[in-house]
Design a protein around this nucleic acid. Structure first.
Lengths: 114, 114
DNA sequence: TGAATAGTTAGGTCAATACCTAAGTATAGA
DNA sequence: TCTATACTTAGGTATTGACCTAACTATTCA
């Protein structure tokens, strides 16, 4: 069963920003606190936590408090759902292309049989 | 070699809208003209063609004129690049999870060996 | 308990996005 | 050549998004 509390377009919206893409890449390397994640970015902390909020609302990350820190982790399920959506569209298109090429090939063969 | 005239976040931005997601799904079923694509949407045509422009700038679709129509087609390469980006992040995360679970398992075994 | 640390809340600015209507251009067909 | 079709261009509005600063809360540790 699909991990689907959110529509894919909210996942895509969450990834439509270089800061948020970078956060996802960082979290693929392991869990991290808000300030660990924020450190590489030249951005005020409230702006950064807003990005984390977008990622969390989209279901791409989860977080919990540990003492005075908040730890974030990737939710691979949301990534997989978005991948599946794209793969479905792409494969249908590719299947159509294959049929089209087969058709062209048959036409060529028939015309060379004249 | 990757099909990469655009950064992935422009692809995600293009998909971050339900109208544009629907256009991609429609085009996975085959090429279509602007008005064919627009028909299901309750939206003025200029608004709709703006969405097509976003998809085309992101490299997700290509289009050409045929008589007085414009025909649109999916560019599967852009979809594949975005899939690859997500799959890379997800697999790194999953690999880390596997190592973590192996570690937990070993710890349990060691403690039961006491 | 007082100071430092980690993050949150409130509130504001500016640019980009998603829509619209009205009027234009280009092609096809009678 | 006139008319209908298929978009495109121009220009406007309202909402959302990405940032900021200032001030707050919660937790740790000396």
């Amino acid at each position: 069963m699909p991990n689907k509390p959110h529509a894919v377009d909210s996942t895509f919206h969450a990834l439509a920003d270089p800061t948020r893409c970078a956060v996802v890449r960082a979290l693929s390397q392991g869990n991290a606190t808000v300030s660990d994640l924020a450190r590489p970015f030249d951005m005020a902390l409230p702006s950064f936590t807003q990005h984390l909020g977008v990622l969390e609302n989209a279901g791409l990350i989860v977080s919990w408090r540990e003492g005075r820190s908040r730890v974030c982790a990737l939710n691979a399920g949301a990534l997989r759902d978005a991948e599946d959506w794209m793969a479905t569209a792409r494969r249908e298109w590719e299947a159509r292309m294959d049929r089209f090429e087969t058709h062209i090939h048959k036409m060529k063969k028939e015309s060379s049989d004249d």
